[in-house]
Amino acid sequence: TGIVNVSSSLNVRSSASTSSKVIGSLSGNTKVTIVGEEGAFYKIEYKGSHGYVAAEYI
């Protein structure tokens, strides 16, 4: 489990890349469940599926 540490919002992406499609966003202080790690990204549970967020902001 981690907490989103941004002042505005954090993009949730379809894969572990900044060039991948943005599938949603999370606001600051949102609690997320981390299920894996790929490079600089965490794989998280997101809306019944999975998404990827930049690990530096969690």
Results as ranks from 00 to 15, higher is better:
24 G>P: 01
15 S>Y: 08
31 K>Y: 12
57 Y>L: 07
52 Y>Q: 00
42 Y>N: 01
24 G>S: 02
55 A>Q: 14
17 S>P: 01
8 S>D: 11
58 I>G: 01
54 A>W: 15
5 N>P: 04
28 G>C: 13
55 A>V: 11
49 S>I: 12
47 K>A: 11
26 L>S: 01
44 I>H: 01
5 N>H: 09
29 N>E: 07
55 A>G: 05
2 G>S: 05
43 K>E: 05
56 E>H: 10
9 S>K: 12
21 K>I: 10
50 H>N: 05
34 I>C: 04
3 I>G: 04
25 S>C: 15
1 T>V: 13
3 I>C: 13
18 T>Q: 12
23 I>A: 02
26 L>I: 12
1 T>D: 08
29 N>P: 06
22 V>K: 06
36 G>I: 04
52 Y>V: 01
52 Y>F: 10
49 S>K: 11
44 I>K: 00
43 K>T: 03
13 R>Q: 10
41 F>E: 01
28 G>L: 11
30 T>F: 07
54 A>Q: 15
20 S>P: 01
20 S>V: 04
22 V>H: 04
41 F>A: 02
26 L>G: 00
36 G>P: 01
19 S>R: 11
28 G>N: 14
10 L>D: 01
44 I>R: 00
16 A>D: 02
17 S>F: 06
2 G>H: 07
2 G>I: 08
6 V>H: 10
11 N>H: 13
56 E>M: 13
19 S>Q: 11
50 H>P: 04
1 T>E: 11
56 E>N: 08
20 S>A: 13
10 L>M: 06
48 G>D: 08
41 F>D: 02
24 G>W: 05
33 T>M: 10
8 S>I: 12
28 G>P: 15
14 S>W: 08
28 G>M: 12
7 S>V: 11
37 E>N: 09
43 K>M: 09
4 V>Q: 04
19 S>G: 10
41 F>Q: 02
38 E>K: 06
48 G>N: 08
9 S>N: 10
51 G>A: 10
20 S>Y: 07
53 V>K: 00
6 V>A: 10
1 T>G: 07
30 T>E: 11
49 S>H: 09
55 A>D: 01
49 S>L: 10
1 T>L: 11
53 V>A: 04
44 I>D: 00
16 A>W: 04
43 K>W: 05
1 T>I: 14
54 A>L: 15
43 K>V: 10
40 A>V: 09
25 S>A: 11
36 G>E: 06
15 S>A: 13
33 T>K: 12
27 S>H: 10
23 I>Y: 02
56 E>S: 09
30 T>D: 10
25 S>D: 06
16 A>I: 05
31 K>C: 14
13 R>I: 06
40 A>N: 11
5 N>F: 08
29 N>Q: 11
42 Y>W: 05
57 Y>I: 03
26 L>D: 00
17 S>A: 08
38 E>A: 07
16 A>S: 07
58 I>S: 02
29 N>T: 07
52 Y>I: 00
44 I>E: 00
46 Y>S: 00
45 E>Q: 09
28 G>Y: 14
47 K>C: 14
39 G>I: 03
16 A>Y: 05
24 G>N: 01
34 I>V: 06
19 S>I: 09
1 T>F: 15
43 K>H: 04
17 S>L: 07
37 E>C: 15
41 F>T: 02
5 N>A: 09
36 G>F: 04
35 V>R: 04
3 I>Y: 15
14 S>A: 15
19 S>D: 13
56 E>K: 14
35 V>M: 09
9 S>G: 14
42 Y>Q: 01
50 H>M: 09
17 S>K: 07
3 I>N: 06
49 S>V: 10
20 S>I: 02
8 S>G: 15
45 E>W: 11
3 I>D: 04
4 V>G: 04
45 E>T: 08
25 S>L: 13
31 K>Q: 12
27 S>E: 13
44 I>G: 00
20 S>W: 05
35 V>L: 14
28 G>K: 14
22 V>Y: 05
39 G>Q: 05
16 A>E: 02
18 T>C: 15
50 H>S: 07
27 S>Q: 13
18 T>E: 13
32 V>Q: 00
53 V>N: 01
3 I>E: 05
42 Y>I: 07
50 H>Q: 06
8 S>A: 10
53 V>M: 02
18 T>I: 13
49 S>M: 12
11 N>V: 15
10 L>Y: 03
31 K>D: 05
11 N>Y: 13
16 A>G: 05
9 S>D: 08
28 G>V: 11
56 E>W: 08
1 T>M: 12
2 G>Y: 09
35 V>Q: 05
17 S>V: 05
43 K>F: 05
11 N>L: 15
38 E>H: 08
4 V>N: 03
15 S>L: 09
2 G>M: 08
6 V>Y: 08
27 S>M: 13
3 I>V: 12
42 Y>F: 09
28 G>F: 14
25 S>I: 15
22 V>W: 06
18 T>F: 15
58 I>D: 01
2 G>K: 06
12 V>F: 02
36 G>H: 06
38 E>W: 08
22 V>M: 06
15 S>C: 12
56 E>Y: 10
26 L>Y: 02
6 V>S: 13
57 Y>M: 08
45 E>A: 09
54 A>Y: 13
10 L>E: 02
20 S>F: 08
22 V>D: 03
3 I>S: 06
18 T>M: 14
43 K>I: 13
17 S>Y: 07
54 A>E: 15
31 K>P: 09
32 V>T: 02
31 K>H: 10
14 S>N: 09
21 K>T: 11
27 S>R: 14
58 I>K: 02
4 V>I: 08
12 V>H: 01
5 N>K: 12
13 R>C: 09
54 A>P: 14
50 H>K: 05
55 A>T: 10
9 S>Y: 13
9 S>Q: 11
13 R>W: 15
20 S>R: 05
41 F>I: 02
54 A>H: 09
40 A>E: 12
32 V>I: 08
54 A>I: 14
43 K>Q: 07
12 V>E: 00
33 T>A: 07
33 T>F: 10
13 R>K: 06
15 S>M: 10
22 V>N: 04
10 L>T: 08
6 V>Q: 07
26 L>M: 05
24 G>I: 04
10 L>F: 04
37 E>S: 14
24 G>Y: 04
21 K>Q: 11
2 G>V: 08
31 K>N: 07
34 I>S: 01
48 G>T: 06
28 G>W: 13
52 Y>N: 00
11 N>D: 15
37 E>L: 15
2 G>L: 07
15 S>R: 11
32 V>D: 00
50 H>E: 06
47 K>I: 06
25 S>H: 13
1 T>S: 10
12 V>K: 01
18 T>H: 15
17 S>H: 09
23 I>F: 03
33 T>P: 03
58 I>N: 02
2 G>T: 06
51 G>E: 01
16 A>R: 05
43 K>P: 01
31 K>L: 13
46 Y>V: 02
1 T>N: 09
29 N>Y: 14
38 E>V: 10
27 S>I: 11
12 V>M: 02
56 E>P: 05
47 K>E: 12
21 K>G: 08
34 I>K: 01
21 K>M: 12
16 A>Q: 03
28 G>I: 10
41 F>R: 01
20 S>H: 04
11 N>W: 13
38 E>N: 06
49 S>N: 08
7 S>I: 11
38 E>I: 09
29 N>S: 09
38 E>Q: 08
31 K>G: 05
22 V>P: 04
38 E>Y: 11
52 Y>M: 01
39 G>R: 05
14 S>R: 11
32 V>R: 00
26 L>C: 04
25 S>V: 15
5 N>M: 13
23 I>M: 07
46 Y>K: 00
49 S>F: 10
17 S>C: 10
9 S>C: 15
6 V>P: 07
34 I>H: 00
24 G>F: 07
2 G>R: 08
58 I>Y: 03
9 S>I: 11
29 N>H: 12
58 I>Q: 02
44 I>N: 01
41 F>K: 01
7 S>R: 12
46 Y>A: 00
17 S>M: 07
20 S>L: 03
22 V>A: 05
54 A>C: 15
4 V>K: 04
34 I>G: 00
55 A>Y: 06
56 E>A: 13
52 Y>K: 00
42 Y>T: 03
9 S>E: 10
24 G>C: 07
10 L>S: 03
40 A>H: 09
55 A>K: 15
14 S>Y: 11
22 V>R: 05
